[in-house]
Design a binder for these strands. Sequence first.
DNA 1: GCTACATGGATTTTT
DNA 2: TCCATGTAGC
Length: 841
Amino acid sequence: MTNSTAQSLDPLAGLNAQQAAAVQAVNGPVLVLAGPGSGKTRVLTRRIAYLIDQAGVAPWNLLAVTFTNKAAREMRERVERIFEDKFGAPRPGEPPRLGGLSIGTFHSICARVLRVETDAIGFQRNWVIYDSADQLALLRSVLAEMGLDEKRHSPSAMQSYISRQKNELLTPEFADTTTYMNEVSARVYARYQEALHVNNAMDFDDLLMRTVMLLRENEGVLRKYQLKWQYLLVDEFQDTNIAQYELIGKLVGPPEGRRNLFCVGDEDQSIFRFRGADYRNVRLFRDTFPDARVILLEQNYRSTQAILDVANAVISNNRNRTPKALRTDNGQGIAVSVYEAYNESEEAAYVCDEIERHLRGRKFGPGDFAIMYRTNAQSRALEEAFVRRQIKYKLIGATRFYERREIKDALAFLRLVNNPPDRVALDRIINVPPRGIGTKSYADLKQWAAEIDVSEYTALQILLYGADQVAQARGAPLPPAARAHSFNQGKVAKFNHFTRMTEGWMDDLYARRFGSVAELLDRILDDTGYVADLNDGSAEAEDRIENLKELRGVAARYTAGLTDSRPETTILSLFLEEVSLVSDSDQIDEEGGAVTLLTLHTAKGLEYSIVFLVGMEEGILPHARSIDSGDIEDMAEERRLAYVGITRAKRQLYLVHATRRSLWGSSTTQSPSRFFDEIPDDLLTGMVDRRGRQQESMRRATAWESGDDEATWDRSTRGAPRNAYTWEQKPKAGSGRSTTWSPAGASGSASGSASGGAYGGAKGGAESSRSSAARQTQPSAQAAGGKKAQFKRMDSVQHAKFGTGTVVESKTTRDDEEVTVAFPGVGIKKLLVSMAGLKKL
DNA sequence: GCTACATGGATTTTT
DNA sequence: TCCATGTAGC
């Protein structure tokens, strides 16, 4: 290699003094307190490269812990790129340069350790990870078993209690029993843990707790990992919880030992307290290692000074923090804008207006914008507006892919094949699609299984193969009752049909007849008739099928005859593990070319040129829960959340709040967030003095309600069509399902201000009343057409009045089809197929 | 056993 | 408004 290429890897190139110091601090504990936008990712990647290339540390001795899988992936890629720059692309046959380098989240690292140590923790191979829905399902059955009423003992309260205990490393025998409720919860916790073990499953929190327990109790295992990982790097250290802190402590060894621990964090960005994270770990670290090197990164490379000033103003109201002054050389920039909207639809309309204005200026593309909010529910009004305006957007999080019904069903089949004791999986799919095994039969099966002390799946096997054969296969005798069951022949036939099918999959799996997990999935969907059952021709079914295809795409990457070279696991279980540990932020890609909609929590670690922080209202941000609790720490965390949002912006920041908001059904008046009061007026623009602002707001609100404000009305009709208006004066409509009350003809969604349901959009009043009047008088014009959808997304259609357009969405209603069509130059229209006379092109 | 409908309850944030 | 759960009728 030549000198010049060697020099291209100068891990210190372009770093400031503090960053360079952090990269080079090789020995002893280091704590980097990094403000937002201070280049900490850069420091971490450079440091990894530096340790490997300059300090001679073997890659397999390094462990870097990140907050998300996405961050892990990116960090690995960046380090790889550094080495490619220096040594060129890896040649075929060459051993991997970064072989054995471990980068991952706490959860994924722990899963890997536990996978290897399956025997040591007393689990069977191919154990699975339960997500929170699975946890709830299991908790419900535990509660039922214990004869506890769900109404009095809410499963989700139990769930959060258990999670709290686990995050604090409290096993059931040490769990908190200080109140009656906690005492009950502790007993549920104990039973729940047993149930998990019987199912050969762990929940998220178990991954951490069991790993720590293992390292605590097993000296040999502890030594092994201490020897393996001699250099530890931890990102987002302020968001570690007790379990994670102890895990790091165990791996790094006693304070007087090796101590090659490098932690990066920012107390001001700690936003996961509800998950047990405790930013005081930062101080704990300093107490544990009094001689630790502490490096401050205060220089900000991301934002303008105008944005940082606002961030400083807000965060300085938190006590118990190390004061920091964010500064930048990026210049003052544009002042932060404040906008007071009338309600959430007008808020969305404003955001769209501004985005469109910027897009016209051609300096920014859609991918430069992000809209951040406190709660996922807030995304709905925004989405509506984006669809109407035909602005490309990407929604992160709301309905998580792996929580969709069809995906969970498909995964449940795979999970059962992988791990037959998984009762939660079996519960889910024993009768999906319907195969004549009703609640009663299945309950009987469960009871019988409990009596003979075997898993439900084993009971099924006994029905199919007979008790003797099953006993022989397990190498253990079964109780006499295993020979006697009370199912009639018809039921046994139904059970056997199911079992024969699943046994077939397992046989073929272990005979390596599938080339990939995708092939197994194909076979399952085929044998069960799942897709056929799903496909009723509706657009929704089509979406679900699309989702299954997407899942198949992921599964296709898991090949090699499904059996890994490692004995402790199979490719199938690695696949299941991957899908259990994906996070929302994994969906984020920079290339998208679309406006990003996301919660403040998912926004952590990201940056965008222009950021809109919407719903800056009391009760939203700060959230009502945190206001009501009266806990000063809760409020401090809300403030940090605001701070995180503010500091995501590179060039321009908008703070938006609304006067009214309909959050769940009814509309309430909202007052601006207290965080506005913490920002000096001269740092904000777009806001007259407070009194003037309120008068303006009143004027607009009155105008809105009487419907005579042209400007507002115009925007409102685009943002949320007529029913946003009529909804204000609608009579109390019992269940909200009435379609006859509204003179303006908003039908269907009676109180839905923003959530559609009205037919026709801007200037479409006439159109809309006609449609809905027609709908009332001719309810089943198209009844003969049944449920079949005639149109689907992306279809080109012709309309007599609006011309040619493209179908955005199609929904089948009971007796008709409702199509949303984008007509260029006209706008988005919702049309009833029975009325509109649409022609497919 | 299945489907359609009614009712009641609930919503913070996520690995 | 939305969802999960419960119930009546087939």
